[in-house]
Every structure is written in structure tokens, then in C-alpha cells.
């Protein structure tokens, strides 16, 4: 465990908490993509299936349970809460699950480290996490005026990915024999998806203006 990895995990947790708190406090999920949240839930469940038999550390186990729990709560709010569900922007959140899930499923069957069910599900979760933000980014672009908390949520998520890259660089330099090509390439693609958003986020911040994405 190094500081980059730790910072990444904390930022990830923070991003989820920012979102959950926003929904809880405002009783609104306007601007939030349910598709992205459900894809993240699928990512966590398929990746953390090993929770019960593959114990690595208390740290990891606690994070796994918290990620699954908090993301489930967000999905519950958006689908079931009597006031929150009315604010869901269904008409703009139209990205098709199948466009993301199908290629990731096929790719995880073709490119994986070992051919067994749990390894394939784990690989699928790595691929799916890389692209799960796309419905949210598309929704942001359609909504035009991005509210601060939604903007911060996406920014924190992107920052989390950036710290994971620093963590890999650090591990590669300090741990002999450490390599994880599949995770690295997926991670680089994932972080790349945020670059455009980052650019507009920083511009808006520098000019202390409200974040607006071009169409």
C-alpha cells in the first residue's frame, strides 16, 4: 500500500459520498445517470464476488462492502425513493446498457488471465469499470448546466483514477516483478475518458464560473 493508492481509494469513497449526500439532502437526483450507477453496481458485485473466500486485508474488505453498500443505496434512491425517483432525468439518460456490457463480456471471454468463471467475471468488471462513466458523461453534455455537486462527483471520480495511475507507476518502480497489463490498459482508457471533462471543469474553476459543457 502506498500513498497514491490510499489517496485514490479515499477519493473514490468521497466521490460516492458526495453523490449520496447530495441525493439525500436535496431529495433530487437531477443530472445523475442511473445507468452509470447500475453499471458501477455491476462492476462492484462481479469484482468483489471473492469477498467471502479471498481475504486479502481488512482494509480491502471494508472498502468492498462500503462500495457495494453505498452504490446500492444510490440506486435504491433513484429507483425507489418516492420523491427522488420523480427527479430522475429518464428522458436524457438513454445510453444503452448493451452497448457497454456486450463488448465487455465478449472481451473478457477473449482476453483474460485464466479461463474460469470468477477470473472472467473479475476481468469483465475491469473492462466495464473503464467505460461505466460514459452514460454519465453523455447525460452531463445533454444537461448543459451542470450543478456543482454533480460536477464535483465526476471530478473526484476522475481524480481517483489519476491517483491509481500514479500508484501503478510507483509500484512498477518499487516492486520487482510487478506488472498488470490488463488493469493498466483498461485504467488508462478509463482515465482518458475524463480528460475532456477535466479541461472544462478546470476552465470553469479558473474563471469561477458555472460548469458548462459544449454540445
Amino acid at each position: 500500500m502506498n500513498l497514491f493508492r490510499f489517496a485514490g481509494d479515499i477519493l473514490h469513497l468521497l466521490s460516492i459520498l458526495v453523490l449520496l449526500l447530495k441525493i439525500h439532502a436535496t431529495k433530487s437526483c437531477a443530472g445523475i445517470s442511473l445507468k452509470t450507477q447500475e453499471l458501477y453496481l455491476a462492476v462492484f458485485i462481479t469484482r468483489y464476488l471473492d469477498l467471502f473466500w479471498n481475504f486479502h486485508s481488512l482494509y480491502n474488505s471494508v472498502f468492498k462492502v462500503v462500495y457495494i453498500g453505498t452504490t446500492s443505496m444510490i440506486v435504491w434512491y433513484m429507483r425507489r425513493h418516492r420523491n427522488v425517483k420523480l427527479t430522475y432525468d429518464r428522458d436524457h439518460d438513454t445510453f444503452r446498457y448493451l452497448f457497454l456490457v456486450a463488448p465487455c463480456a465478449v472481451l473478457s471471454l477473449l482476453i483474460n488471465a485464466r479461463y474460469n468463471l470468477f477470473e472472467i467475471l473479475w476481468t469483465f468488471s475491469i473492462y466495464l469499470e473503464a467505460v461505466a462513466i460514459l452514460p454519465q458523461l453523455v447525460l452531463l453534455q445533454r444537461t448543459k448546466n451542470v450543478d456543482n455537486l454533480t460536477g464535483n462527483y465526476v471530478f473526484l471520480l476522475g481524480l481517483y483514477r489519476a491517483f491509481y495511475i500514479l500508484n501503478w507507476v510507483y509500484r512498477f518502480a518499487t516492486e520487482p516483478g510487478y506488472s498488470a497489463w490488463l488493469v493498466w490498459i483498461s485504467g488508462l482508457i478509463q482515465t482518458g475518458l475524463y480528460l475532456d471533462f477535466f479541461y472544462y471543469y478546470v476552465q470553469a474553476w479558473k474563471q469561477s464560473k458555472k460548469l458548462q459543457l459544449p454540445s
Binding site: 486479502h56 477470473e119 491509481y164 510487478y178
Partner: peptide
Amino acid sequence: NKSKKKKDEL
């Protein structure tokens, strides 16, 4: 164990 090592991240 290589496969264990790569799964030490979240």
C-alpha cells in the same frame, strides 16, 4: 502467487 497479487487492489 501472481494472480493473487494483481487482485490486491480495489
